[in-house]
């Protein structure tokens, strides 16, 4: 039992490292070959995990081989547009200028039901509202609504919007993120003073604190 436990830990760590090296992307954004590699790596790891008769190396070598092949293919598709088109495929325009491209639907074996479902997921409930719809190589649907159906932006109203940057995390679960303090031009004593104004005596008592681009501090103390 302990043998299975240790083997599982070893293979789990190797899979995590391999996935980490392959890069950050959500499942829905993976290219077909990336998804295939991710599924195969998990499968390759699970077999020696359960079967102690199979040497660990029989799981590790295929994982490393897939990792090397994956990095190589990603590098080739990065460097060559032709290779990228072969490996990843090209986006397909399903609707252009408000007109449905029937031939493209047939070529992609994409049904109207799937298409309408994807539109509803994007809060578009009428196909007549779509100017362009593009089926990306990773299976995601990109939609440009007709001009009259677009959401109003500050630019449409001749208003210049306020500049906004992401809020910067300062404290997470009682741990101060020192690097981020420099970004907001704060130091530890000043931060502690601000916390005291909010009734929090120490950084360790803070569950989460962040500062937005306006210099406003958001802070929540831990419950106990």
């Amino acid at each position: 039992m302990l043998v299975v436990f240790i083997r599982t830990l070893i293979l789990y760590i190797i899979v995590i490292i391999a996935m980490r090296i392959m890069g950050k992307r959500q499942i829905g954004q993976l290219q077909p070959f990336e998804l295939a590699v991710a599924i195969m790596i998990s499968d390759l790891a699970s077999v020696p995990m359960q079967n102690t008769g199979i040497p660990l190396i029989n799981g590790i070598i295929p994982i490393l081989t897939m990792l090397a092949a994956q990095i190589l293919i990603s590098y080739i598709s990065l460097k060559s547009i032709k290779a990228r088109n072969i490996i990843c495929g090209r986006p397909s325009i399903l609707i252009s200028g408000g007109k449905i491209n029937e031939k493209v639907f047939r070529n992609e074996l994409y049904t109207f039901n799937d298409f309408l479902e994807q539109l509803r997921n994007k809060d578009i409930y009428n196909i007549a509202d779509v100017e362009y719809a593009i089926l990306e190589s990773n299976g995601q649907l990109s939609v440009i609504p007709k001009a009259s159906k677009k959401n109003v932006t500050p630019e449409d109203l001749n208003i210049s919007g306020k500049y906004e940057a992401p809020a910067i995390d300062l404290i997470i679960d009682g741990d101060l993120i020192e690097n981020n303090l420099d970004q907001v031009k704060l130091d530890k004593p000043l931060l502690e003073l601000e916390l005291k104004k909010l009734g929090i005596q120490s950084i360790k008592d803070v569950l989460f604190a962040s500062m937005d681009s306006d210099g406003k501090l958001f802070c929540q103390a831990k419950e106990d």
Binding site: I21, I61, L64, T65, L67, A68, I71, L72, Y75
Partner: peptide, 16 residues
Amino acid sequence: SKLKSIILVISILLII
């Protein structure tokens, strides 16, 4: 970072 990826791939292939 590009060099790192290439070195990693070559190292893995050589080790195997």
